[in-house]
Amino acid sequence: MNGENLLLLSFILFSLSLLVFLTNRNLLIMLMSLELMLNAANIALVNFAFVRRSAEPAAWLFMLFAVAAAEAGIGLAILLMLARTFKTLRADLINKLRG
């Protein structure tokens, strides 16, 4: 278990989440994969805390948790609004700027 392994895990999780994001048409699952991408970035930050043996990246990680919570809250609110306006959750059917 070393820094490279953590970076590799972060890379794999980010790539797979990106794959899920790009191949899905459901907005809810796209938002979930966004959260997972942020989670993968957090693992990369943990790698820096691990390699540098420092609390600094850990402090930033703590702040990123709050950013993720804000992102999920706003994202789901926007999703709810879109779903009520367009009556669907499919990203390819939401093709108007003015609902």
Binding site: T23, R25, M32, A69, G73, L80, K87, L89, R90
Partner: peptide, 27 residues
């Protein structure tokens, strides 16, 4: 926070959005 609070938020959204089609789809 992540696997507790945010997941609860997603579950609430799932229940609120369950009436909208489609259930889902991978391309």
């Amino acid at each position: 926070i992540y696997s507790g609070a945010i997941m609860v938020l997603f579950v609430v959204a799932l229940t609120a959005l369950s009436s909208f089609p489609p259930a889902l789809s991978s391309k």
